[in-house]
Design a protein around this nucleic acid. Sequence first.
DNA 1: ATAAAAAGTGAGTAATCACTTACAAAACTA
DNA 2: TAGTTTTGTAAGTGATTACTCACTTTTTAT
Lengths: 179, 179
Amino acid sequence: MTEKQELILVTALRLFAEKGFDTTPTSLIAKEAGVSEGLIFRHFTNKDGLMDAIVAMSEERLRTNAERILQLTNPIDQIHATLELPVKLFQEEREFWMLQFSLKWQKKYKNQSYTPSPAQLKVIQALTDAFRALGYAEPAQEVKVLMMLLDGFSHQLALSPSPESIETTLAFLKSKYPN
Amino acid sequence: MTEKQELILVTALRLFAEKGFDTTPTSLIAKEAGVSEGLIFRHFTNKDGLMDAIVAMSEERLRTNAERILQLTNPIDQIHATLELPVKLFQEEREFWMLQFSLKWQKKYKNQSYTPSPAQLKVIQALTDAFRALGYAEPAQEVKVLMMLLDGFSHQLALSPSPESIETTLAFLKSKYPN
DNA sequence: ATAAAAAGTGAGTAATCACTTACAAAACTA
DNA sequence: TAGTTTTGTAAGTGATTACTCACTTTTTAT
């Protein structure tokens, strides 16, 4: 991965997140990255290839985050860490994760991105075990609900420009899963 | 609203939901609707105007659904009816609501669509009262959580191709808010 | 019946965009 | 250092697309 290759990637990421994939011309990516347009195609074949490279980055990052949850041993800690995930991700790399979320709704990437990755499956399994260990009657359903909360929470973080009282909401969510 | 005007609208709605706004040419809309391309611009000024007309339709439908919830008198019924909403909407008009959800992530419609409509605000107020009447300690936070669940649930309904056990999940969600 | 307004057509058109190509500079390799 | 591969550029190009315009048909009003 050359220096310019990375420059193209982060610039494309930013612009795709800001303007959307279809409404971001490759010419603009090149201009903002300070490279020639042809270079994009030399390295990434076509515009889709550029997006694929970004998606690959995201899968790598998701894997890292999944592993941090899996390493926890206390069931309650695992559940709380899962709830904290959206806040953490958006604080760290807002536009990167916004792009990931909007991607889910783009026809082209719908199928491949919503098939849960191996990492995601592992987390789901671990959380099911966690709920079981805590004595919940229907662990699988509990995980489903938790995932919905995660989606909804991320959604709120992503779309409200000034997310008021994030920490309060997070604390309230956690209180729904007491020790 | 002439016959052809409606034809254009429903065709555009379907195609936008299937292919996305940016990747649906007006020429295709015209072809599938069986009208000349020029007619689209006569009636809706430009492609954005066409989308605006669709969004207006959606706001009208949301208002109708909000009113049905507001008419309920029993607090638990209001909460349960809110939970049922996504299932109901997606059963009735799947592609219409899918378009609405994907719209939230399109930059252009982000600001205007996530400012809650008056109808939405009324429902939020009613639900807050409902939670208070039921003796919940933090009604406002409960409503926030409920809205997250709604988002996450819709998300799941929209993105999983064969949503297994919808009714089971719905029943489980309702059981979280017992009488 | 006739004028005026509205609905509808279809052939453009200018601009944009993803991608190609021919070539040059730089970095490796032997 | 000579040869080869890789990285990079600049100037196209053909296809697509949103939108216009000159025109005809239909509807409405008087």
